[in-house]
Write a protein that binds this DNA or RNA. Structure first.
Length: 467
RNA sequence: GACCCCAUCGUCUAGUGGCCUAGGACAUCGGCCUUUCACGCCGAAAACACGGGUUCGAGUCCCGUUGGGGUCGCCA
């Protein structure tokens, strides 16, 4: 079972790569890599009307961003349609499929009556044994699978365990539409077989599909892959994930300033764990991942934990990488880049997202005169301004501009003028950052540089005295 | 509604019959650190859905109840 493992992520390109899909892809990759197998991507685009190239691109980009790139060229299901049709034909030949001439109205009625009788809405099999000569001329038939009526179908799911259903519960599904195109149910089976997929790892919403697919595999004389239905991700309130809950495309997470490492780490811990380990790299995950250790129950999406992980990976990211990410989100020039670099250590400590770094890093990136928050401005008393002017002259005479140098200037100031740290820290912070909350004063001053510090102090004293 | 699946702190989870007076993490609350905001450190509160069995012994096995989810398309 561990030889030549082949897994696939098989999304339909009707929208972005959402967070649940990303996790499915992750688990497929983790499992394949763990056994030195192959991870594939198959775009399920048999429904041409709903598939878009934008969606295909979004899925491929999303996977690439997360580092979940397939090991072989992407398979487009629509290119295998001929094969799917042949499979349907062969089932007709072997008497395991038949033409059905029901109209949409007839089907609608069948569902209603079944529902009324307290049964599942389903096709009643009326064309199963009916003679072809009865076929109405004006109706194009679909091909339906003649599914077994007796016995039951078992699947041994690697995550969910042994699951079985009575065959009579399953109606005859459509294999080929009236227009001759194959349905998902047929395509998946044929492609999984042709691609030599050994393990179908997908969302739990496919669990009941596995029964029908297993029947189809058998009818075609093939053996089904091992199935693993991983639990779904729900919204924070336990209901189905909505956009509000984080059911966004992965590119939305990138825009919000999340790191792929954080998302991957967060996603892998949803339903899977390795003892008490919380911070897990892809390398470790590949080494440790086992399908039978995946939980059966759905989990809820939690932004707090994602934020925590993201903050962790931001802290451990090299400065150069961080700066280039910041540069993608905001304008940085030669001068501000230098300031940013000097102040980055303090910024990293605080931020939960890249966007937060950009926001907080604005103190280094903005140019004079800086904007001062009104609340901060109102705490700048005349006394504050006087102190600012005084300390400006002290800064002026500081020759070697270093963090320690700035520190000693401030400490000396406190001693000479017999004031508390707060008394000078607050006005200085406001003058330099325009806010009552900023990075540490010493590093802020140092990173800004002497000229900028003196400039901002002078701006503040000038501006305030005019009010 | 029918069928299928699931059920440990608010959340993610550890736990595979005795090591569990249930462990870790996020969030919450308190303290320390501190020039602000954070970070960090220390501490607290917080769970085996319920009811029956099986067993010397059950969070762990079985059954039922309740609750939640999924599926029931000529969508995937």
């Amino acid at each position: 079972m561990h030889k030549n493992i082949r897994t696939r992520f098989a999304p339909s390109p009707t929208g972005y790569l959402h967070i649940g899909g990303a996790r499915t892809a992750l688990f497929n990759m983790l499992f394949a890599r763990h056994f030195g197998g192959t991870f594939l991507l198959r775009i399920e685009d048999t429904d041409r009307k709903r598939s878009t190239i934008q969606a295909i691109q979004a899925i491929i980009n999303g996977l690439e961003w997360l580092g979940l790139t397939p090991d072989e060229p992407t398979v487009f299901q629509s290119r295998n349609i001929q094969r799917h049709k042949e499979a349907a034909e062969s089932l007709i030949q072997s008497g395991q499929a038949y033409f059905c001439y029901c109209t949409a109205n007839e089907l609608e009625e069948m569902r209603k009556t079944a529902l009324a009788r307290g049964e599942s809405p389903r096709y009643d099999g009326r064309w199963r044994e009916r003679d072809q000569s009865d076929a109405p001329k004006d109706v194009k038939p679909v091909i339906r699978f003649k599914s077994p009526q007796n016995g039951k179908t078992d699947i041994f799911d690697l995550v969910q365990g042994n699951v079985s259903v009575e065959n009579r519960e399953l109606d005859d599904m459509v294999l080929l539409r009236a227009d001759g195109s194959p349905t998902y149910m047929l395509s998946v089976v044929v492609d999984d077989h042709d691609m030599k997929i050994t393990h179908a790892i997908r969302g739990n919403d496919h669990l009941t599909n596995a029964f029908r697919q297993t029947q189809l595999f058998k009818a075609l004389g093939w053996s089904p892959p091992h199935y693993a239905h991983i639990p779904l991700i729900h919204g924070p309130d336990g209901s189905k994930m909505s956009k509000r809950h984080g059911a966004l495309g992965v590119e939305a997470y990138r825009e919000m300033g999340y790191l792929p490492e954080a998302i991957l780490n967060y996603l892998m811990r949803l339903g899977w764990s390795h003892g008490d380990d919380e911070i897990v790299s892809m390398k470790q995950a590949i080494e440790w991942f086992e399908l039978h250790e995946v939980n059966k129950s759905a989990s809820r999406f939690d932004f707090d934990k994602l934020n925590y992980l993201n903050a962790h990976y931001i802290k451990s990211m090299p400065d150069d990488c961080l700066i280039s990410l910041i540069e993608k989100k905001t304008k940085v020039n030669l001068v501000t880049r230098d300031r940013l670099k000097k102040g980055l250590a303090g910024l990293k400590e605080r931020a939960k997202t890249i966007n937060e770094i950009v926001e907080k890093g604005e103190v280094y990136l903005c140019s004079r005169p800086i904007k001062i928050e009104s609340e901060a401005l109102s705490s700048l008393t005349q006394e504050c301004l006087r102190k600012l002017q005084l300390i400006a002259t002290d800064f002026q005479s500081l020759e070697e501009w270093s963090e320690d140098g700035v520190k000693s200037v401030i400490h000396n100031f406190i001693e000479h003028h017999k004031v508390k740290m707060r008394d000078i820290a607050l006005p200085l912070r406001i003058a330099l950052s325009g806010s009552t909350s900023s990075p540490g004063l010493f590093e802020l001053s140092f990173a800004l540089g002497k000229e900028e510090v003196l400039g901002r102090i002078s701006d503040a004293t000038g501006m305030s005295s005019r009010i």
